[in-house]
C-alpha cells in the first residue's frame, strides 16, 4: 500500500490542490484530504488555534487536526510568493502558517515543509518539485512526468473555475472525472459580482452555500476566478501602490474589471471577521464603487457563528433593494 500524504481541505486547497494531487500521485503516493468543512472540524479548529486567528485559519487548524492521525506524512507548505509582482507576498498568517500549526497542534505526523517562493514562475516551481521529491528520496524521470501532469491538471482546473464552476466541482471533475453540473438558476434577473478569497467563496460551510442561495433568488454570480487573466493585468497600475497580498490584489483587480468593463448590478464582498487585509480591501472597493456612480456594495462578514438565517436575511435584503432600485419588485 502506498504512503498517505495529507492535504488539509482549506486555504490554498481551493486554488492549488489539483497540481499537488497529480504531482504526489505520479510519485507513487496516495493523497488524502480531510472531509469537507463541517461543524465538527470547525470546532476542532477553534479549540486548537490561537483565539485571535481569523475564521479560515481556524478552519485550517481543524482540518489539520482531523488529518493528523490518518496520514503518514503531512504536506504543510509556506506560501511566500506565487509571482514576481512588486512586493507582493501573502498575508502574515500564511507566512507563519506552518509555525502556527506546529506550535498549536501536538503529535503531528512527519511534515513535508517547503517554502513556496516562485519568484521565477514555473522554473522555480520545477526546482521546488525537485527539492520535494529529493526529500522523499525520488530522483528519476518520474519527477518530470509528475510535474507536467500536475501543470496539466492545474490548467484544466483553472479553465473550469473561469467558466463559473465551484472549486470542489472543478477538482472532482479534473481528478475523478465527475461530470460538471451547473447550479440550477430558475430565472435570471440580475448579475452580481461575489468577490473575496477562494477559501471563503468556495467553502460551502463557511459561507452557507452563498452560490446556491443567490441562484435561488435569480442572481447570476461572477467571481474573481472568472475574470480573464489578461483583462485583470490591465488594472495593475490602478492603485497608487499595489497591495502586499496576492489574494487581495486579485480581488481588487477583479473589482476594477467588473466596475469598468462588465455590467453588473452590485458587488458583494465576502470577508471573514478579523481578516486584516480585508479592512483595507473592503474600504478600497467601497470607495471605488462609490466613484463609479454608486454601484451597490455590500460586505458580508463571516464568522464561526454558522447561523444560516443571518446570512440569508442579509442576502435577501440586498437583492430586494436592488430589485427596488430597478423598479422590478412584484
Amino acid at each position: 500500500m502506498s504512503t498517505k500524504i495529507g492535504f488539509p481541505r482549506a486555504l490554498f486547497y481551493y486554488l492549488y490542490f489539483p497540481f499537488w494531487h497529480q504531482f504526489f500521485k505520479e510519485l507513487g503516493y496516495e493523497v488524502v484530504t480531510s472531509s469537507p468543512t463541517s461543524k465538527l472540524n470547525m470546532d476542532m479548529g477553534i479549540k486548537e488555534a490561537v483565539n485571535d486567528a481569523c475564521l479560515p485559519v481556524k478552519i485550517y487548524h481543524g482540518h489539520t487536526a482531523e488529518l493528523k492521525n490518518k496520514v503518514e506524512l503531512l504536506f504543510l507548505p509556506r506560501m511566500i510568493r506565487v509571482r514576481k509582482y512588486d512586493t507582493e507576498t501573502f498575508c502574515p498568517k500564511f507566512l507563519g502558517l506552518p509555525d502556527m500549526i506546529k506550535n498549536s497542534i501536538q503529535d503531528l505526523p512527519p511534515l513535508i515543509e517547503t517554502d513556496i517562493d516562485l519568484f521565477r514562475g514555473k522554473l522555480s516551481l520545477w526546482r521546488l518539485c525537485h527539492d520535494i521529491a529529493g526529500s522523499l528520496k525520488i530522483k528519476d524521470f518520474r519527477i518530470e512526468r509528475a510535474f507536467l501532469k500536475g501543470l496539466l491538471a492545474q490548467d484544466r482546473f483553472k479553465a473550469c473555475l473561469a467558466k463559473g464552476y465551484l472549486a470542489q466541482q472543478a477538482i472532482d471533475y479534473v481528478l475523478y472525472d465527475t461530470p460538471l453540473e451547473d447550479i440550477p438558476l430558475p430565472r435570471q434577473d440580475m448579475e452580481l459580482a461575489v468577490l473575496g478569497y477562494p477559501y471563503l467563496i468556495y467553502d460551502n460551510f463557511a459561507n452557507e452555500e452563498i452560490f446556491v442561495r443567490l441562484a435561488q433568488m435569480g442572481v447570476k454570480v461572477w467571481t474573481v476566478e472568472m475574470v480573464p487573466p489578461l483583462r485583470m493585468n490591465r488594472y495593475k497600475k490602478s492603485l497608487p501602490k499595489n497591495l502586499f497580498w496576492n489574494f487581495s490584489n486579485r480581488t481588487i483587480q477583479a473589482a476594477f474589471y467588473y466596475l469598468n468593463e462588465h455590467k453588473i448590478d452590485g458587488i458583494i464582498h465576502v470577508t471573514a471577521f478579523g481578516c486584516g487585509p480585508d479592512a483595507v480591501v473592503g474600504k478600497l472597493m467601497e470607495l471605488m464603487a462609490k466613484e463609479k456612480g454608486r454601484v451597490p456594495f455590500m460586505t458580508l462578514s463571516l464568522d464561526e457563528h454558522s447561523g444560516q438565517a443571518g446570512i440569508i436575511t442579509r442576502l435577501e435584503a440586498f437583492v430586494d433593494m436592488l430589485h427596488l432600485t430597478k423598479g422590478k419588485i412584484s
Binding site: L95, G96, S104, G276
Partner: peptide, 16 residues
C-alpha cells in the same frame, strides 16, 4: 492591537 496579523502568529509561538 486587536487584529494585528503578525502578532497573532507570534502569539502562537509565545504560547509554546
Amino acid at each position: 492591537p486587536l487584529g494585528c496579523m503578525p502578532e497573532i502568529v507570534a502569539r502562537s509561538a509565545l504560547n509554546k
